[in-house]
């Protein structure tokens, strides 16, 4: 057992799956969810706990899109680039977010507040283009709506207002 809180998450994730080697991906999912990435330290610790080479953890962490080895921002934005959303100009939404938050391509902003990634289909094709901020789905987004404060449309669990306020406030603070 380690007293470091990050490693405690790891311990409990390993325990949850009975320390089984074949549960590697499930355990990595837990870590990714709790810590936002599979860091080098986590990977090395995990390799010890499961008695597997660290190269196997690294390989999986870089192969699967669900994991990232780079830390994510406090707020993680996912932009759907499935076919349906792509046809509705989701690429432009992605570019616009990058420009507003000063992030080149996928990755995190310098201060670690935000990170953005393109994801495959989020399964809301009929409500597209969609994006999600911290797992809250925003439907029918457009590049133009990103910086502006639209009307108080309430959409799903998340409002455009909330989504864009977060971003706008961030820009003003800068």
């Amino acid at each position: 057992m380690d007293n470091n809180p990050a490693m405690k998450t790891l311990d409990s994730a390993v325990e949850k799956y009975g320390g089984k080697k074949e549960a590697l991906l499930s355990i990595m999912h837990e870590i990714q969810k709790a810590q936002g990435s599979i860091s080098e330290d986590s990977a090395r610790y995990l390799s010890q706990k499961l008695d597997i080479p660290v190269s196997q953890v690294f390989s999986a962490a870089t192969f699967y899109r669900a994991f990232s080895t780079e830390p994510r921002g406090k707020h993680h934005i996912k932009v759907c680039t499935g076919t349906s959303c792509y046809l509705r100009a989701s690429e432009k939404i992605f570019e616009r977010i990058g420009r507003e938050l000063n992030i080149a391509g996928e990755g995190a902003s310098e201060d670690g507040e935000f990170s953005v990634e393109k994801v495959r289909c989020m399964g809301c094709c009929n409500a597209g283009p969609v994006m999600a901020i911290d797992e809250q789905i925003c439907e029918d987004v457009s590049a133009g709506k990103i910086p502006d404060l639209p009307k108080q449309e309430i959409i799903g669990e998340m409002t455009h207002r909330k989504a864009t306020t977060v971003i706008k406030k961030y820009r003003e603070d800068k």
Binding site: K21, L25, M28, H29, A60, A66
Partner: peptide, 24 residues
Amino acid sequence: KEGGGAYVCGESTALMAGLEGRIG
């Protein structure tokens, strides 16, 4: 088993590799 987000895991042998905890 939760997958890792890989289109190639629609391929049966890749999916099984994923189930075994390896890359797809």
